[in-house]
Nucleic acid binder design. Structure first.
Length: 673
RNA sequence: GCCAAGGUAGCUCAGCCGGUAGAGCAGCGGUUUCGUAAACCGCCGGUCGGGGGUUCGAGUCCCCCCCUUGGCUCCA
């Protein structure tokens, strides 16, 4: 591969970033080798934003060592050693590496490099087997930084030696490097663990146990808002809310197969009157038994059982992470029991609901469809049907997705939704999984039109993920500054002197009566201190009341992060706030359009539900609803005039188009269902 | 679970070669009644993560355990 030597400064920009980083990994290895001549080299690939190299060294690298290595790297860069490719006969390279004791390189050659000639890159005294390409000389590597050390198993196998991995980052220009480092800072500022502490949202208590979350009052309020919204929406979409116990007899878990396939994530049984019980890692068995408490007809289906179900799963201590990876968590779980024919419609309904949730909370996301793995249960034809249902639903909803071939659970295909936070990092959130296993094992049936017993199709799904993880994602997404409808405290009333304290308290009553969460700051502090505290707590609004406001029945409105908006009549502020509540928005959505999954199983048959076809509400057709009663409710909740409401609801409903931003995924995937 | 780094007041952190623990904020008490991001004075506050050991003496050194963090592995 011919490459001409050009001066570093002009060539730098043209080199692909990946290549630069790979060369930087070599540069680091060379520096490590100079400092620790016995260091054995493993592999040194590029990753998002940087690179790493794995070393086997008898001493543990300290952070001072990183500084030393980095300094030496700069020296070697200054030496501007030409980087040249040579082709070594395989045998010669093998014996050289054997003589050097480079056991990892030897293993790589023996197992993965059959070619008679092997490409080796040389720079000064250092050489490394590598396909390349690389930059022309070490002098071209200018803007880099070593970021961390960590242990890493050789070939990712926990039974093999643990090596030391040094991570680094490299960029074309100083500006890019600094921008990246700033971005890391930014990510730290958004860290939900830090914000969770600062905003007093939650805690983990050493005396209680790792991975067990306590929602403090402010976190509790947010969770309450999310849960209320979730329940309302689910009832509205034809789900039934159920509640199940936290423990069940060992026999049940035997029957479901959890003891066989999931035991390593389950906690040991406890004994009660000679009977063994296990705390639940999943909610599905309970829902199944509720379903099975009656004989079900095809007319009952689909049945949708929803529950904010708290489960406990053993996670290895090293993987716990704030709210995002825990041992006890509450899934926003639901199980849908339906006929094979209903499956496609049900999947569409779930995706629609998921989209609605994501839109409501402001998340962007991407979708991954996982298909049949090697080891699986169920007929191939059924798998095909279910996978097609998932795929079709994604396409019908206009969602882009990637396919993880063979990445499904052994019991069925699934769609995973990766939430993207504001920094573009991805986290496994909602999941939709078809299950062929449990209905079989638990003998879950319905009676079809001809009186035959038929196996139901079962869908596990969450549309948020878990309350813990979702809250963590929300905190990072909004950097702790929750939108008005979610904010634990929506406004703080700030009396300037004690003279206005009573007025402030009267105002607070009015706001609470309107369903808003406000607080009066009655401390003997200066207004500035109160404002500062409210700003720090990221409260969306501050209502300053002084002499003038008291006289005119006004408040001076101040918005978080924006500042003073000037005095406003109290009624205007109330109206403004009510407009921003989720209830108001929900009613708007609800007024325009009923969910596609209007039918409600047995309720339909009792005449208590929404007519499946036609009917005054024309639910399924998605036409507007104009019931007088509903209008009145909406008027009350939104504060809008009837004419406005009717006009609004007459507009045809369209879902806003989503923009999918491509970005790196940092998925902690597949833990639900 | 593995490798590494940590754990000192409610929070953020300082504490040298082993000599008996300190700051800011928060809290509490007082004074101040103030117009858009921190008023002033004073006070209280510590099993130095837990246990054991070495030592005349341990926050500091050694061993075990717990928890946190960064990775690895795992993630039905």
């Amino acid at each position: 591969m011919a490459r001409e030597m050009t001066s570093a400064s002009s060539a730098v920009q043209e080199v692909p970033l990946d290549l630069l980083r790979h060369s930087c990994a070599h540069l680091m290895a060379q520096a490590v080798r100079r400092l620790w001549p016995d260091a054995k080299l493993a592999i040194g690939p590029t990753i998002d934003n940087g690179f790493y190299y794995d070393f086997d060294v008898p001493v543990a690298f300290s952070s001072e060592d990183l500084v030393k290595i980095e300094a030496l790297m700069r020296d070697i860069a200054r030496e501007d050693l030409p980087i040249v490719q040579k082709h070594w006969p395989r045998q010669e390279l093998l014996s050289t590496y054997r003589n050097l004791g480079e056991v990892y390189k030897v293993e790589i050659i023996e197992e993965d490099v059959p070619d008679p000639e092997v490409s080796v890159y040389h720079q000064g005294e250092f050489f490394d087997m590598c396909r390349g390409p690389h930059v022309a000389s070490t002098g071209q590597i200018q803007h880099f930084k070593l970021t961390s050390v960590a242990g890493a198993y050789w070939r990712g196998d926990e039974h093999r030696p643990m090596l030391q991995r040094i991570y680094g980052t490299a960029w074309h220009t100083r500006e890019e490097l600094e921008a990246y480092l700033r971005q890391l800072e930014e990510a730290r500022a958004r860290d939900h663990r830090r914000l969770g502490q600062e905003l007093d949202l939650y805690s983990v208590q050493e005396d209680i146990g790792p991975g067990l979350i306590h929602f403090h009052p402010m976190g509790g309020r947010i969770r309450h808002v999310i849960e209320s919204f979730w329940r309302e929406t689910h009832l509205r979409r034809g789900y039934e809310l159920v509640y199940s116990p936290h423990i069940a007899k060992t026999d049940l878990w035997q029957r479901t197969g959890h003891l066989e396939f999931y035991a390593e994530n389950m906690y040991a049984p406890m004994e009660v009157e000679g009977q063994k019980y296990i705390i639940k890692p999943m909610n599905c068995p309970f829902h199944i038994l509720m379903y099975k408490s009656h004989l079900r007809s095809y007319r009952d289906l689909p049945m949708r059982y929803a529950e904010l179900g708290t489960v406990y799963r053993y996670e290895r201590s090293g993987v716990l992470h704030g709210l995002l990876r825990v041992r006890g968590f509450t899934q926003d779980d639901a199980h849908i029991f339906c006929t094979p024919g209903q499956l496609p419609g049900e999947i569409v309904g779930v995706i629609d609901l998921m989209q609605y949730m994501m839109k409501s909370f402001g998340f962007t996301y991407r979708c991954v469809l996982s298909t049949r793995p090697e080891k699986s249960v169920g007929e191939p034809a059924v798998w095909e049907l279910a996978t097609a249902a998932l795929r079709d639903a994604l396409e019908a909803k206009g969602l882009e997705y990637t396919v993880d071939e063979g990445g499904g659970a052994f019991y069925g295909p699934k769609i995973d939704i990766i939430l993207l936070d504001a920094l573009g990092r991805g986290w496994q959130g909602p999941t939709i999984q078809v299950d062929f296993n449990l209905p079989e094992r638990m003998d879950v049936n319905y009676i079809d039109e001809s009186g035959e017993k038929r196996r139901v199709v079962m869908v596990h799904r969450t549309v948020l993920g878990s309350m813990e993880r979702f809250l963590g994602n929300l905190v990072e997404h909004y950097k702790g500054a929750f939108p008005f409808w979610l904010a634990p405290v929506q406004a703080v009333i700030v009396p300037i002197t004690d003279e206005q304290l009573d007025y402030g308290r009267r105002l607070a009553e009015r706001f609470w009566d309107a369903g808003l969460r406000v607080e009066v700051d009655g401390r003997r502090e200066k207004m500035n201190a109160k404002l500062r505290d409210a700003e720090t707590r990221k409260v969306p609004y501050m209502l300053v009341v002084g002499k003038r406001e008291l006289a005119e029945e006004k408040v001076a409105l101040r918005k978080h992060g924006e500042g003073d908006l000037g005095p406003m009549p109290v009624d205007a502020v109330l109206a403004r706030f009510k407009e921003r509540t989720r209830r108001a928005r929900w009613l708007k959505d609800f007024g325009r359009r009923l969910p596609s999954q209007g039918g409600r199983g047995y309720l339909d048959r009792l005449g208590a539900g929404i007519p499946a076809r036609g009917g005054r509400f024309r639910a399924r057709a998605g036409l507007r609803v104009r019931s007088k009663v509903r209008l009145r409710v909406r008027q009350e909740c939104t504060g809008l005039r009837p004419a406005t409401l009717i006009r609004r609801s007459s507009k045809p409903h369209t879902w806003p188009s989503r923009t999918e931003s491509e970005s790196t995924s940092r998925s902690r995937n597949g833990r639900f269902g």
